[in-house]
Write a protein that binds this DNA or RNA. Structure first.
Lengths: 80, 80
DNA sequence: CTGTAGACTACGGTCGACT
DNA sequence: CAGTCGACCGTAGTCTACA
């Protein structure tokens, strides 16, 4: 499984937990709504600055965001 | 200060602490040596997969790498 | 061993409009 | 509210080669 697909899952679950729409998240992170959509669907992978902007928009540290991605990646590798 | 500049500093210090050359790191991370050079100089910013590959090549977790970047960012913001 | 440069390909990221 | 499409631009990332 590709890292951007994992990232998309994590991003979507974090966003919905926060109860914010893609549009709202895009606004907070200063990114484009269609781009958020692509990220959540695993079509694109973010750059460092996008990661930082998204984490900030979600009110968590970038390292926490990455930790969740790592954990998901590991889970899937184990059950693979 | 731009995040990619901070990242470059962190990457370079981690690499030298590990006592490996840019060439060796590039090989381990499956990336190009000239690209590593650009990253360390803050000219380019990495994507998610590059971050993962580099962290792995340095024997640390991606979240740890990002944490160091965050801390540096914060330090500079404070003294700013 | 590293910086840099040019040339190139692929993809990150924006924007508007429609489903 | 979310997916997607096409057009567009900037840049991530490779490769060769030289200082």
């Amino acid at each position: 499984m590709k890292p951007e697909a994992i990232f998309g899952k994590v991003l979507k679950s974090l966003r919905t937990e926060h109860g914010v729409s893609q549009e709202e998240l895009a606004f907070r992170a200063n990114l484009d709504r269609s781009y958020i959509s692509m990220l959540e669907r695993g079509i694109n992978q973010p750059t460092l600055s996008s990661l930082i902007a998204l984490a900030e928009a979600l009110g968590i540290r970038t390292s926490e965001l990455l930790k969740m991605v790592e954990d998901e990646l590991k889970k899937i590798k184990d059950s693979d």
